[in-house]
């Protein structure tokens, strides 16, 4: 058996320094560190994220889910009046493994009452730059970025147009799917590589269909989700929202997610009624973001593979 760690001891010291840096950053800004449960009574409905389940044990009635992010629990704290909070937490996503993914990974997630996504993007940049050192920072609306890099309007283009843009540069065989599949393909295969060497690139205001847990409103006559992503040299590092606070709309999205799961032959997920009740009770207007801490360490330490940042990656744990 290979008992030895995947990361070097130097790398583990760098990880400890990163954690200390993060805590120092938030302490200086008056953001409270919190801890929430890893094993939750409901999972996540998002069809593109699959939770791991724990089904046996005297304490387990029904199924418990390893969290895919601490988002729902932290929103309950916000609704309870916590004020600004952050958490460094393990998160688990089934089937995600590769040079940039480990099924168990560390998220840094934080919430800022009173912020919108633009204010939060600036705070994310502050944190990342304070750790990585000076880098250029770009902000692009999702729509403008597609127009600039691929010459296609992601909000209005026909499905056929998106497909032909992809097929002109990629072999995708018989790939088929809805608009979001093609947009995700264009983003991950064609746009991401063009962000390499450009420092921090924030992308914001996603198509409404990709709003996830962000609020939606009209910008230039088109409905967009106020969600943002941060890419650092082409590596996706963080995903944030100007948070949806409307319990009715949140329930509608959960149900729609489950319908898409059904169509795709995936398990339906129980809705997180705790979260829905918290939203109904009233969560303050806020923006929140989840940042992959292992990936930030990859960037800081110059690693090409996430396994080099982990004491024990999935195959050794």
């Amino acid at each position: 058996m290979g008992w030895q760690p995947a990361a070097t001891l130097d790398r583990l010291r760098q990880r400890a320094a990163l954690l200390a840096h993060v805590r120092d950053f938030f302490c200086g800004r008056g953001v409270l560190e919190v801890e929430t449960s890893l094993l939750c009574s409901s999972g996540i409905t998002d069809p593109s994220i699959e939770p791991l389940r724990v089904q046996c044990g005297q304490s387990i009635t029904g199924t418990r889910f390893l969290q895919t992010s601490p988002e729902y629990a932290m929103k309950r704290l916000l609704a309870a009046g916590s004020g600004p909070i952050y958490q460094v937490a393990k998160a688990f996503r089934d089937g995600e493994a590769g040079p940039r993914h480990n099924p168990e990974f560390t998220l840094l997630e934080w919430y800022r009452p009173g912020f919108d996504h633009h204010q939060l993007m600036r705070e994310v940049a502050d944190l990342v730059l304070s750790y990585l050192g000076t880098q250029p920072v770009e902000y692009h609306a999702y729509r403008a970025l597609f127009q600039q890099e691929l010459g296609v309007d992601p909000l209005t283009a026909e499905l056929d147009t998106l497909q032909s843009v992809a097929r002109a540069e990629l072999d995708v065989g018989g790939l088929s799917g809805d608009r979001d599949l093609w947009l995700d393909l264009l983003m991950s295969h064609l746009i991401e590589p063009r962000l390499i060497g450009r420092g921090l690139c924030f992308v914001y205001d996603y198509p409404e269909s990709q709003a996830a847990l962000a609020r939606v409103s009209e910008v230039d006559g088109m409905s967009v989700g106020h969600r943002f992503e941060l890419y650092v040299n082409g590596l996706e590092l963080a995903n944030g929202y100007w948070e949806l606070g409307d319990a009715v709309e949140q329930r509608r999205r959960f149900v729609a997610d489950n319908q898409r799961r059904c169509v795709a032959g995936q398990n339906e997920q129980p809705l997180d009624e705790h979260l829905l009740a918290a939203l109904a009770a009233g969560m303050p207007d806020c923006a929140g973001v989840a940042l992959g801490l292992d990936r930030l360490l990859m960037l800081g330490a110059g690693c090409e593979d996430i396994r080099q940042t982990l004491a024990f990656d999935w195959s050794r744990s």
Partner: peptide, 9 residues
């Protein structure tokens, strides 16, 4: 493995 945090893998 190519996967956006939110989106198709």
């Amino acid at each position: 493995f190519v996967k956006p945090g939110k989106g198709q893998a």
